[in-house]
Design a protein around this nucleic acid. Structure first.
Lengths: 120, 120
DNA sequence: CGGAATCCAACACGATACTG
DNA sequence: CAGTATCGTGTTGGATTCCG
C-alpha cells in the first residue's frame, strides 16, 4: 500500500500530471467537449489529452459523458468530488495571475486572449 | 517571450516540479536545514533536492541562507513572495488529507508519522 | 469527432563518487 | 554537512497513423 510522507503528496498524485491542473481549471468554467479542450490547450497532443483525462476520470474528479450520435460527441465535466478541488485551484489561478503581473508588468504581452485562441 | 494560454500555467511553472510543492509545504511549517528536508522527504535524492531548491530560489519564493561555519549549515526559508503561495498550498494540503481519508478510511495505514520519519 | 496504437526522442531522474 | 559532477536509464511525451 502506498505510503505518503506528507498528506499533500496524495493531492499531487491526483493533480500532479503535466496538464491536469490546466484541464481542471478549464472545466471549472465550463464542461467541455474534447475538441474544445484541444483548442483551449494548443500545446497538448491528442495522446496526452486523452491520457490525462483518463487518469482524472479514474481518480473520480471528472466524468466522461458520451453521446451516442454521429458524429461522436464527448463532454468532460467535474464530478462533485472534482468540485471539492475548486478552492485550491482557484487560489492557484489567482496566484498565477499575480505572478504574471509581477513578472511582466505588461500582461498583454504574455497572455493569449480567448479571441486569439479562437483562431487556432 | 513566454506565452501562457491560461494564467494558472504561470503558477505551474513555479511550483510544477516534482518535489516543489512538498518542499514548500514543509517550509510553511518551519525553515529547514538541508539535512532536515532530506529526512522529511525520504524519497528525494541529494541531486533533486538541490535542483528543486535552486529553481525555487531563482523564482524568488525561497531564500537560501548560508552560515559560514564548520561544519557548513544552510537553511531554506520562504520569502515574502513565497508566503503569498500559502493559501493555495494550504488548500491543497487540506484536500490531500481529505483525499486520503476518503480513499483509505484507516488513515494510519498510509501516512508516515513524524515519529517514524525521525528514525529514517 | 474522438480515440487507440505505434514508434521514437528527450530529458528527467536516480545512483554513485567526489569536493570543500 | 552541503553540494557538484558524471553517467546511465526509463519514463514521459511528441509525431504519426489508423479505426469506429
Amino acid at each position: 500500500m502506498k505510503k505518503y510522507n506528507i498528506p499533500v503528496e496524495a493531492a499531487l498524485e491526483v493533480i500532479g500530471g503535466k496538464w491536469k491542473v490546466v484541464i481542471l481549471c478549464h472545466l471549472i468554467k465550463n464542461e467541455r467537449r474534447t475538441s474544445e479542450l484541444k483548442r483551449l490547450m494548443p500545446g497538448i497532443t491528442q495522446k496526452m489529452l486523452t491520457q490525462q483525462l483518463r487518469e482524472l476520470e479514474e481518480d473520480g474528479v471528472l466524468d466522461r459523458v458520451v453521446f451516442n450520435q454521429v458524429p461522436p460527441k464527448v463532454i468532460y465535466r467535474l464530478t462533485d468530488y472534482g468540485w471539492s478541488l475548486m478552492p485550491a485551484l482557484d487560489m492557484l489561478c489567482a496566484w498565477g495571475e499575480q505572478h504574471i503581473e509581477n513578472t511582466y508588468p505588461d500582461k498583454s504581452e504574455v497572455l493569449l486572449e480567448e479571441t486569439e485562441l479562437q483562431q487556432i
